[in-house]
Simulated scan of single mutants.
Amino acid sequence: MMDLTLHLCDWWHNLWKNSDLVSIKECKELNCLKESWQDWLSCDNDYARRDIGMMEAEGGNYFNMVSLIATKL
């Protein structure tokens, strides 16, 4: 099954920019991706241990962490 949350920052911005429910204030990639993944992969969790191989294969080339800040209209 394809994960429907793995998208670029622009994809998320384009998804929300035409909404009548919110006004986007900021959409950007965060710099904490490496630290966040290191914390996750080093914890004692079965899911985290399964992600180790995936992150090694990914090599820092594909994942990002997106922050989208919006105000409810």
Rank of each mutant, 00 (worst) to 15 (best):
S42V: 01
C43T: 05
K17G: 01
Q38Y: 10
L8Y: 08
I24N: 12
Y62H: 14
S42C: 08
C32I: 15
L6C: 11
L6K: 11
L33R: 04
K34I: 06
M55K: 09
T71V: 11
K28G: 01
R50F: 08
K72L: 06
A48S: 15
G53I: 01
W11M: 00
C43F: 03
L41Q: 08
S36I: 02
E35M: 08
M55I: 12
R49L: 06
Q38W: 07
V66C: 05
C32Q: 12
N61Q: 07
T71M: 00
W40F: 14
T5W: 02
W16Y: 15
N45F: 04
R50A: 15
Y62M: 09
M2C: 07
S23W: 02
C32E: 14
M2D: 13
W16F: 15
W40V: 15
D3K: 07
N45D: 15
L41M: 15
N14D: 15
S36R: 12
S19N: 04
D46E: 12
L21E: 10
T71S: 01
D10E: 15
N31V: 10
N61R: 07
F63G: 05
T5C: 08
V22W: 00
F63T: 07
S42T: 13
E35L: 11
C27L: 06
K25Q: 14
G53Q: 07
M65A: 04
S42N: 15
I69L: 11
K28A: 07
L15W: 10
S36F: 15
I69P: 00
M1H: 10
W40R: 07
S67F: 04
Q38D: 15
S19P: 01
K28C: 09
T71D: 00
S42Y: 01
I52R: 14
N61T: 01
S67D: 02
D39H: 13
Y47K: 09
D3Q: 06
K17L: 05
C43S: 14
K72M: 03
R50I: 03
A70Y: 06
G59W: 02
A48Y: 05
S36C: 13
Y47N: 08
C9F: 02
R49F: 03
